[in-house]
Design a protein around this nucleic acid. Sequence first.
DNA 1: CAGCGATACTGAACATTGTTCAATAAAAAA
DNA 2: TTTTTTATTGAACAATGTTCAGTATCGCTG
Lengths: 193, 193
Amino acid sequence: MAKTKREILKENLLNAAESRIESDGLAALRARDVTKDAGCALGSLYNAYEDLDLLILAVNARTLGRLHATLQEAAAARQKPEDKLLALAMSYLDFAADNLTLWAALFDHRMPSNVPVPQWHLDNHTQLIGEIIGPLAQLYPDLDEATLTLRARTVFAATQGIVRLSLEGRFVALDPDSVRAELSAFLRQYLNG
Amino acid sequence: MAKTKREILKENLLNAAESRIESDGLAALRARDVTKDAGCALGSLYNAYEDLDLLILAVNARTLGRLHATLQEAAAARQKPEDKLLALAMSYLDFAADNLTLWAALFDHRMPSNVPVPQWHLDNHTQLIGEIIGPLAQLYPDLDEATLTLRARTVFAATQGIVRLSLEGRFVALDPDSVRAELSAFLRQYLNG
DNA sequence: CAGCGATACTGAACATTGTTCAATAAAAAA
DNA sequence: TTTTTTATTGAACAATGTTCAGTATCGCTG
């Protein structure tokens, strides 16, 4: 299973971009920096990937993959659906805190207008929401699948909002323990209602 | 109370920028477009405002002001704290839907790294959270002020997450009625817990 | 292995930005 | 009116994503 040179180039660029985003954030990513790090010419980026946006999406796909695996582990380690949901939220928070810039890139990145997000990237997100549907279905056996999907997205969105406002640190800085406590208490109260 | 020429110029630029963001979104805002619309030279923008970011912050401040007034009205029209909180969330959703691009600009805009957000802009956000603290304090009289502030931010963040994921329409498009129903049901269940 | 067509790579050049600043115009002061 | 101060202008600059004609490399065929 030898890799073609093109595949090696794509991987080098992907690693370089990931590394740059990790250390300096998405906003500081430059085509010239990435190609220099990857040891190729500026123009080669456009040989390997359609453009810089698609390279960023590739980084995001990798991040989403790691996140998904982390969440699956967390949920699998619990039995009761409430515990699964809480574990999902907590490990989501931990992942975001431990991978701050890469996680932020997932949501900060915008496609140029009128360019749609590729389907495979949408599917990545659907898989993530899927992790919530399982425990939610156990908790609310009467809900049909469409409602469950909607509900899972809502719960995810609320969690995401809490994690994001905290870690973004744009308006206020917040110590990690408080965030954990708030998120945990918030979800418990919701699941209790 | 005659306005100085400088004040008139600032207002023209502010109106032009607001209008551009409203119709095309923050990402499409260009210094050259704004100055052309405002009827001044490119360089004059940097006479009136420190740079483009500060002009955007001025637009955001205006949007936050309108949002704040809308929320105050909504809360004032209810008696019971639960009703106030629900009304706040619903009118927040409505405002976001009715002012999509201007509302999105509030959260999409980023200061260049290492440049702090001005204090007056932080205060604007604090005022917004303040609207939630009142009803929340009625609902949970035992909580001290620090906890209430934290709690208010958490509730705001959750609401914001739900509204944002829905209206962003990045991963899935969602009809407005479903969003309203989801947000309302979500908060009711939380307040019930 | 030689030759040749296809493919990949290169980096200089281009277009689009935000920002600056020397020159000019306008206003204020003398 | 003359002089000084202030405001405005838009050409020039630097940074950046993207393109593409030229060059090198690769892969196949005889």
